[in-house]
């Protein structure tokens, strides 16, 4: 399996990662080597094997649906790269 520049461009777009045009090909080669490495799993017999969902034998705990936290707006916003009043500011989304 080899990842051509077009595939790399598609994955990078899905991952919202800017990749320079001249990097698409070398990156594709690097990624292809890794995909080639993990491809060996195709040879493992996994018929009737359940995919792992939890590595330890524990039931997912349940709790009451109660508010236990909150009222920390300023803390939440404190690290915003850009804010207006008590909102995160981003480039215009709707014209």
């Amino acid at each position: 399996m080899s990842l051509d520049p077009e595939t790399v461009r598609t994955i990078a777009a899905l991952a919202r990662l800017r990749v320079a045009v001249d990097q698409l090909e070398p990156l594709g080669k690097e990624l292809s080597a890794i995909i080639g490495f993990v491809e060996q799993l195709q040879g493992v017999d996994t018929a009737d094997v359940a995919p792992m969902t939890s590595v330890i034998d524990l039931l997912l705990p349940e709790r009451n649906d109660e508010v236990t936290d909150g009222n920390c707006r300023d803390g939440v916003l404190a690290n915003a790269p850009e804010r207006i009043d008590c909102f995160y500011a981003v480039p215009k989304v709707v014209e």
């Binding site: 993990v38 799993l41 195709q42 493992v44 996994t46 094997v49 359940a50 995919p51 792992m52 969902t53 590595v55």
Partner: peptide, 14 residues
Amino acid sequence: AYYLKAQKVRTLIA
């Protein structure tokens, strides 16, 4: 082909 397969092999390793 990849993720689900890997989770199955992970079961075998465990």
